[in-house]
Nucleic acid binder design. Structure first.
Lengths: 116, 116
DNA sequence: TTATTTTATTTATGTATGCTAATATAGGCG
DNA sequence: CGCCTATATTAGCATACATAAATAAAATAA
């Protein structure tokens, strides 16, 4: 009620103000996606993927937990729309779904990695 | 083991590649912070705050849940380093801790809000 | 066909999280 | 001082989450 689409009531919607992510549904969608990626293994999966397409076994080898566990985390990321998958013969390749998500990850790198 | 600081083995560390967030501790720190903000109420709190300083009661009024609940969520955000607090008389003012986090939130707005 | 590889799903269990209600702390006011 | 307001903390409970183990499904190879 209090927060109803105040991006309409303010002139500039691109700068950093209290009108960020104003709509309830946007907030819910954002928090769902963030929750999906805010897990060490899933974040690591996203880092392993980057802008590339990688199959499950390679992800397992890179991340270092059980195949079952990786598969479950991949399912979470796919179900939440973070990843897309493509089947080639008996292997499944995963990649980050869209460029904006890649940019978000890159942004997180800037925020969370001291070197940047 | 597999993922050990591959930002050192690649030339360009700023573009979008599979070397994102390479170090284990960076990943853990990032996932902790993301987990902290990946909750509808906490995200809403961050949106209400924006780049401003707001006291608890105003946050309660804007977000719309119990004072106790808001207080717990504020404590989570403060403990994870997302927010800082300042006490003025008998009121406590919260604000987003650093500009980089604000930029991350702004980035999420771009990613998750269709209008942008 | 059977066997093997790759990936997904199910089940069970321990742990963490979120919420409410009640209580506590702390400052300001009369 | 007592009372009120603002904020924090605690306890209890319900739900969600993370993981491992076992099994299933699907494609390939022999």
């Amino acid at each position: 009620m209090q927060q109803e689409s105040n991006e309409m009531t303010m002139g500039n919607t691109c700068d950093i103000t209290h009108s960020m992510l104003a709509k309830e549904e946007d907030i819910d969608r954002a928090s769902r996606s963030l929750k999906a990626i805010s897990h060490p293994l899933r974040l690591k999966i996203l880092c392993v993927l980057g802008d590339q397409e990688v199959n499950v076994q390679d992800i397992v080898d890179s991340v270092g937990t059980s195949q079952s566990n990786i598969s479950q985390h991949l399912a979470i990321l796919r179900d939440k729309g973070i990843l897309t998958s493509r089947k080639d013969a008996n292997r499944v390749f995963y990649r980050v779904g869209d460029y904006r998500t890649l940019r978000l990850i890159s942004m997180m790198q800037e925020v969370f990695c001291p070197a940047h």
